[in-house]
């Protein structure tokens, strides 16, 4: 079978069968790409995951792009990325068309009255886990608090917060490199 088609098919399956997004599919990707297809070594795979976690974009698509690129260049990257995106796009599009139709339904509205508060909880929970995982040094806890203040209170665009964090990181890197001359 053509390698590009194989890439497409493998990531299509991963995209179609992972509920819950990014990290939920990690296990499935590892099984099919590392264990079954042997496209990448296990150490390379975990290095890749570490890098992808820190760059912008969709986790699944970035993984597909990298593995596709490695095996078959730009063509392979595009095939793998398309494979990972197409199933979700088709499914959610059908749901969107269907849901727009039935939104006015009374029972659907009652169900969603229960679901909405749960969505809020599902957003707050991972953010607290992330804050906890960065460590509780009180200098570092100021950053998420400042972010929340800027967005929730001042209504500043999250894009500026991210640009600000990048600039501060570069400045701190510059200062510590120039004047302290040692690792932070």
């Amino acid at each position: 079978m053509n390698l590009c088609f194989q890439l497409f098919l493998t990531f299509f399956k991963i995209g179609a069968f992972t509920l819950g997004g990014g990290y939920a599919m990690l296990d499935l990707v590892e099984k099919s790409v590392v264990e079954k297809k042997k496209w990448v070594e296990i150490t390379e795979f975990w290095n890749l995951i570490a890098v992808i976690q820190s760059i912008p974009g969709v986790f699944a698509v970035n993984t597909a792009l990298y593995i596709g690129y490695k095996l078959k260049g730009i063509k392979g990257a595009l095939c793998a990325a398309l494979g990972s995106v197409i199933p979700s796009v088709i499914i959610i599009l059908l749901v969107a068309i269907f849901f727009t139709e039935y939104k006015r339904n009374e029972v659907v509205e009652q169900i969603f009255k229960g679901i909405r508060p749960c969505v809020v909880a599902l957003i707050l929970s991972p953010s607290l886990k992330m804050i906890k995982s960065t460590g509780f040094s009180w200098k570092m806890i100021l950053i998420p608090i400042a972010t929340v203040f800027l967005i929730w209170w001042c209504g500043i665009s999250p894009v500026y917060v991210i640009i600000g964090a990048i600039i501060i990181g570069l400045l701190v890197g510059f200062v510590s490199y120039r004047f302290v001359k040692k690792e932070m």
Partner: peptide, 27 residues
């Protein structure tokens, strides 16, 4: 790299704050 490491050091808590803020906004 020194710069790359520092940028990620500040990005991580900032994105955590972003997520928390959107939770509050939807409340």
């Amino acid at each position: 790299n020194h710069y790359v490491k520092n940028v990620f050091r500040f990005l991580k808590p900032a994105t955590a704050g972003l997520i928390f803020a959107v939770g509050l906004l939807l409340m």
